[in-house]
Amino acid sequence: MTIFIFTVSLAAAIVVGYYILRSFVWYSTDLIYILLSPIRNHPIPFILITWMIGFIIIFIFFWRKTLHYVDQIVEASRNLASDNSDYIRLPSELKQVEDRMNAIKQESIRNARLAKEAEQRKNDLLVYLAHDLKTPLTSVIGYLTLLRDEQQISEELREKYLSISLDKAERLEELINEFFEITRFNLTQLSPEMSHINLTRMLEQITFEFNPLFAEKNLTCQLDIEDNLEISCDVNKMERVFDNLIRNAINYSYENSPIIIRSKKDNNDLQLYFINNGPVIPKDKLNRIFEQFYRLDTSRGTKTGGAGLGLAIAKEIVELHGGTISAQSEEEKVEFIVRLPLSP
């Protein structure tokens, strides 16, 4: 464009100059006449030489400007790997390059943060694994040692120690299964084995199996589910989701209160609500309860849950089915909402 403008301007200047000079009378002794005579005698070479000189000047100008842009881009590229979050600034002519480099830098910062968080989760895994496995294991070793060392122990006490040891051993098995399950979900690309099921019958069967646990806290379970509600899902995995949500509701429910399971259709989605009466979960904790190893009781006691993997596993499975899971809590009620795509 610059060369085109220069060419047009040069042509216009020659034409204008020609008509201006032509309006005067020049003598052979005039200095201007002497200087312009070669141009009049050889106009084409003069025009070509003038155009070439202008072209070279324009080329050098833009070449140096381009080199300057390259230097700025090279300098900006050094900031891509920097830890600071300052945006890269380039001339307005390089706006697209600036936007792209800033996008790459922000993505790099985000990836670095995610890598740091992943490293922290790995460290948390080791800490939680050691804590959650050591407690029941210590009890098992302690009671078995008593049984070995105390030869004169009564049968009643022996039976009590054996019962406690068995409970702790089962607790160990449960924790190990939970750790294995979440590791399996994290390290492998699982694909659900879909089948068409009657969700109503499935929930009726699952809740029936929880009757002994309901009775321990005098809880009631109310199923407000549409008759013969059918969906496509992986039965075993979805059963794990419902099992974890109901078990969680039991652990954190007030005694003598109901647990409500309700369904609702919304366009092409199915919403399942798992509602229980219990302590309000603060909003900051609501955003974290689906994290691996996160538990509401920070002491990580065994009375109110497992290793903090149940909800994390449920989230993995629901998302594997193309759905979402969320939670809300207010007025001493806790509500988990599972959204699943309806079968065609």
Rank of each mutant, 00 (worst) to 15 (best):
Phe336Lys: 09
Leu147Ala: 00
Arg295Cys: 09
Thr138Lys: 15
Asn267Glu: 05
Asp243Lys: 14
Gly323Lys: 01
Gly278Ile: 00
Phe242Ser: 14
Leu270Phe: 00
Val334Gln: 07
Leu213Cys: 00
Thr188Tyr: 10
Ala249Val: 00
Val338Tyr: 01
Tyr254Gln: 02
Ile60His: 02
Phe336Ile: 12
Arg158Glu: 03
Glu226Trp: 00
Val8Pro: 10
Pro38Met: 02
Ser257Tyr: 01
Thr220Ala: 05
Ile104Val: 14
Ala103Glu: 12
Glu291Arg: 05
Leu219Val: 09
Tyr252Pro: 03
Met101Leu: 13
Gln222His: 08
Ala249Asp: 03
Val70Ile: 11
Leu94Asn: 06
Ser253Met: 00
Glu117Gly: 04
Val74Pro: 05
Arg288Cys: 08
Glu155Arg: 11
Leu286Ile: 12
Leu133His: 01
Glu156Gln: 11
Thr7Lys: 09
Tyr252Arg: 13
Ser326Ile: 10
Lys315His: 14
Met202Ile: 14
Leu190Ile: 10
Thr207Gln: 06
Ser163Val: 01
Tyr87His: 14
Asp234Thr: 02
Asp284Cys: 11
Leu94Val: 12
Arg64His: 09
Thr7Asp: 09
Tyr143Lys: 14
Val338Ala: 01
Tyr128Gln: 08
Met194Gln: 11
Arg300Ser: 06
Lys303Phe: 08
Leu80Lys: 09
Tyr161Val: 03
Phe6Lys: 06
Lys134Asp: 08
Asp83Glu: 07
Gln205Gly: 05
Leu245Met: 04
Ala307Cys: 07
Ser85Pro: 11
Arg113Tyr: 12
Leu203Met: 15
Phe274Asp: 02
Gln151Val: 10
Trp51Gln: 10
Tyr252Cys: 04
Lys217His: 10
His321Glu: 04
Met202Arg: 14
Arg262Glu: 06
Gln189Trp: 06
Arg40Gln: 11
Val334Ala: 02
Leu48Phe: 00
Phe208Tyr: 10
Ser23Cys: 03
Ile206Ala: 04
Val15Ser: 14
Ser77Ile: 07
Asn79Met: 11
His131Glu: 15
Phe293Cys: 04
Gly301Glu: 12
Ile53Thr: 10
Val280Thr: 15
Leu36Ala: 11
Leu129Thr: 12
Ile88Pro: 01
Leu223Met: 03
Lys168Thr: 01
Asp71Thr: 12
Ser28Glu: 04
Ser263Val: 06
Ile32Met: 08
Pro45Asn: 00
Leu229Gln: 09
Ala13Cys: 15
Phe4Gln: 13
Leu272Asp: 00
Ser257Ala: 03
Ile250Tyr: 01
Glu226His: 08
Glu119Gln: 11
Leu144His: 07
Phe24Gln: 13
Thr29Gln: 07
Tyr27Asn: 15
Glu204Asn: 12
Glu226Met: 06
Val241His: 00
